[in-house]
Computed example of a mutant assay.
Amino acid sequence: MSVPFRETHHISGRAVALAEKNKCNLSDITFEQYRELSDKFEPDVVESVFNFENSVEKRDAVGGPSRKGIERQVGYLKAGVEKL
């Protein structure tokens, strides 16, 4: 579901305010609480957004921190060292 940036900015601000009010982390907010903030949230918000391994793996661009990206960088370094 696509949500315009301006709307996501307001929704995320309300989420931060809720976390501050409850003295908890954003990752501690339940799906039901997120859903009260906006009907745009889907059930996977808690698992996908705050699953840091998944978050890192999505960053697969050259120089990124994904496992595939790191393996690619190590391969380049090994090839460079072998040329020395």
Results as ranks from 00 to 15, higher is better:
F52T: 10
R35F: 03
P43Y: 06
E57K: 06
E53C: 06
N22H: 13
R72F: 04
G13H: 14
D39E: 14
A61I: 08
F50T: 01
P43T: 00
N22K: 15
N51I: 04
E20V: 14
F52P: 06
L77F: 14
E20C: 08
F31N: 04
S48I: 08
V74P: 01
V46F: 10
V3Y: 02
E47V: 11
G63T: 09
A15M: 12
K40P: 00
Q33V: 01
I70M: 13
G75P: 03
Q73K: 06
E71F: 04
A15K: 02
V16H: 06
K83H: 07
I29C: 05
E82S: 13
V16D: 05
L37K: 09
E20M: 14
R72M: 10
E53M: 04
V74H: 03
G69P: 05
I70S: 00
K78I: 15
I29K: 05
F52Y: 15
V46A: 00
Q33L: 00
F52E: 13
S27G: 02
R72C: 03
R72H: 11
F52M: 15
K23W: 04
I70F: 08
S66A: 09
A17S: 15
D39R: 10
T8P: 01
K58T: 05
E20N: 15
D44N: 09
G64Q: 05
F31A: 06
N54A: 13
R6M: 06
R67M: 02
L18M: 11
R35C: 01
V49A: 14
K83W: 07
V45F: 07
V49K: 12
S48K: 11
L84P: 00
G75A: 05
I11H: 02
E42Q: 02
E42L: 09
G75L: 02
H10Q: 10
A19I: 07
K68H: 11
T8V: 11
R14G: 11
T30Q: 07
V62D: 09
L37F: 04
V3Q: 07
Y76T: 11
H9T: 03
P65A: 09
S48N: 14
G13C: 12
Q73S: 15
T8L: 09
F31G: 02
G63M: 05
G80W: 09
R35P: 00
K83N: 02
H9L: 11
I70D: 00
K21I: 02
F50G: 03
E47N: 10
K68M: 03
Y34E: 01
V62Q: 10
I70G: 01
T30V: 13
G64N: 07
D44R: 07
V45R: 04
C24M: 13
I11P: 07
L77Y: 12
N22A: 08
F52I: 14
G64C: 12
L18S: 08
E7M: 11
E7P: 00
V3F: 04
T8K: 12
Q73L: 07
L84F: 14
L37G: 03
F52L: 15
S48L: 13
N51R: 01
L26K: 03
E20D: 13
V45M: 04
K23Q: 09
G63P: 02
L26G: 09
I11E: 05
